[in-house]
């Protein structure tokens, strides 16, 4: 669902660390602020970066679906529960009640105007929190992420583990479909017992594959030397510094707005 999209966009050429900085800055900014304007600003900035990333629209289908779920969930829950919290002191304009009777503990579940308004803020925050970090896996090749981990002096066994984990995900899916198809060939309905058998077989198949992989690692003397070299190297260049500075500036704008400096300087 979230996979690397091969392209030569400016974002693809950036060092992964600068993209991680961008994601962290947008996330921090989204958590700090509750302003519609600032959250909209963060979403627009992330959307522009997505456009620069040159990811085909069809690849983003799932992302939009997730965003839609986030928005709906955020809106519904906050519309009902926001004014119901014990420390809420503001006004409460009830539009309608979800339940016709006062159910013990649960109550009427009233949908309020204030709740919907906060639901918009919450949904915008969740969208901003999701949009920015998702740029990283879409525009960074897994091998580049591995290089970043090596640059960050992660233990070599942990890097191997992450590499192998990424490698094993499609393999496990392939094994799952093979076993599932074999089960389907034998009977139509599948019960809990069959699921357990599937799990057991999948475990054994995966572990047998892992044994073969480990053997090939051993034959190549993996782990003999602590110093590993790579054909590809990554460098935090001028463009990365500019992009990181832009990310920090985005966070700065939100921080200034939140702390009121922006408003004071504009005499609003």
């Amino acid at each position: 669902m979230i996979e690397y999209v091969n392209s030569n966009s400016p974002l693809h050429r950036l060092d992964p660390r600068s993209k991680i900085i961008f994601a962290l800055c947008v996330m921090a900014a989204a958590i700090i602020t509750s302003s519609y304007l600032m959250l909209a600003f963060l979403i627009i900035v992330s959307a522009i970066v997505w456009i620069i990333a040159d990811v085909p629209f069809r690849k983003l289908k799932h992302v939009f679906l997730i965003l839609l779920v986030f928005i709906i969930m955020g809106m519904i829950t906050q519309a009902v529960f926001y004014t119901d919290r014990p420390d809420y002191t503001g006004t409460k304009t009830v539009i309608f009640n979800l339940l016709p009777y006062n159910v013990p503990i649960i109550g009427f579940l009233p949908v309020t105007v204030e709740g919907i308004m906060y639901g918009v803020v919450f949904s915008m925050r969740m969208v901003a929190v999701l949009l920015a970090p998702m740029i990283v896996p879409f525009t960074t090749h897994p091998s580049d992420m591995i290089l970043v981990l090596r640059e960050m002096r992660f233990p070599e066994w942990m890097i191997l583990l992450i590499t192998m984990s990424i490698r094993f995900i499609p393999l496990t899916f392939q094994n799952f479909y093979t076993i599932r198809n074999a089960q389907k060939l034998r009977k139509i309905k599948t019960g809990f017992h069959d699921l357990m058998l599937l799990m057991e077989t999948l475990l054994i198949t995966s572990l047998k594959t892992s044994k073969q992989t480990a053997l090939s690692l051993e034959t190549k003397a993996f782990g003999y030397s602590s110093k590993r070299t790579s054909l590809k190297t990554i460098k935090f260049g001028k463009k990365d510094v500019i992009f990181s500075a832009f990310s920090v500036a985005v966070l700065g704008i939100v921080l200034m707005n939140t702390s009121g400096i922006w408003i004071k300087s504009l005499n609003i």
């Binding site: 995966s206 892992s210 480990a214």
Partner: peptide
């Protein structure tokens, strides 16, 4: 240079992780 986990164990952990 020796890791805490052997190569075999690392790959097995990766298999469980994928699951």
């Amino acid at each position: 240079t020796r890791f805490y986990f052997t190569n075999r164990e690392i790959v097995m952990i990766a298999a469980f992780f994928a699951l």
